[in-house]
């Protein structure tokens, strides 16, 4: 078990939890950048291991999109819509943490045991990845601001990538690039939408958008 690996995985997992704790959106954006950076480093490790150039391209792309572009978009976002951006949650902090703990426990339970056994030496990391996924989902459930939802989706994606890396399931570069392209488009669309939502609703909260009730 590699210490570096452990460190990076823990970073990703902790940022996921961090999303739940922090109340300032600028921190959220930075935390996502940190998380993505950890992912980039993980990918870079596997580039070092394989040495394939296409892998390097992927790493660069991920760095460009998930770290720089995302950070840029989110900080702009926070600056622009400061009064409208909310970071409140439905559950208070202790309750949130209890649920986070429960989800982590579930991720380590016998239900997911077969997944952890894919690469036995990485079992703990794999479980961590799954826990990260579940906690990211919880973020989307719990947080009222739409920024948190966007971050939730992205963090979910990061967790999956991490799991894939640890489980030895990384796909060929062309597919990675395709996925990155999708994420790029997704990021752009969500940021356009955010501004449209702000224009129409004057806030960036999910609770504002509840008129479709049937």
């Amino acid at each position: 078990m590699n210490m570096n690996l452990q460190f990076l995985a823990m970073t990703i997992f902790l940022t996921t939890i961090f999303f739940h704790i922090i109340r300032r959106n600028s921190y959220t954006a930075s935390a996502y950048a940190v998380q993505s950076l950890a992912v980039v480093l993980l990918l870079f490790r596997s580039f070092l291991a394989t040495g394939s150039l296409s892998m390097l391209l992927t790493v660069i792309l991920v760095l460009a999109i998930k770290v720089f572009l995302a950070l840029h978009l989110f900080s702009n976002f926070v600056k622009k819509y400061k009064p409208g951006v909310s970071a409140t949650a439905y559950l208070n902090l202790p309750l949130t943490l209890i649920v986070v703990a429960a989800l982590s426990a579930f991720a380590h339970s016998r239900v997911f045991a077969p997944l952890a056994a894919i690469v036995p030496e990485n079992a703990a990391l794999l479980s961590l990845g799954i826990a990260g996924m579940l906690i990211s989902l919880l973020l989307m459930v719990n947080r009222k601001g739409i920024l948190s939802q966007i971050i939730g989706v992205l963090s979910l994606e990061n967790s999956i990538v991490v799991f894939g890396l640890f489980a030895g399931l990384e796909q060929s570069a062309i597919l990675q690039i395709g996925i990155m392209f999708n994420i790029l488009v997704w990021l752009i669309i969500t940021s356009i939408f955010s501004s449209m939502i702000y224009r129409h609703f004057g806030a960036l909260e999910t609770a504002e958008m509840t008129s479709l009730k049937e």
Partner: peptide, 10 residues
């Protein structure tokens, strides 16, 4: 429209 936007976002 706001409702269309809401639907699209969801």
């Amino acid at each position: 429209k706001p409702t269309a936007l809401e639907a699209a976002w969801k």
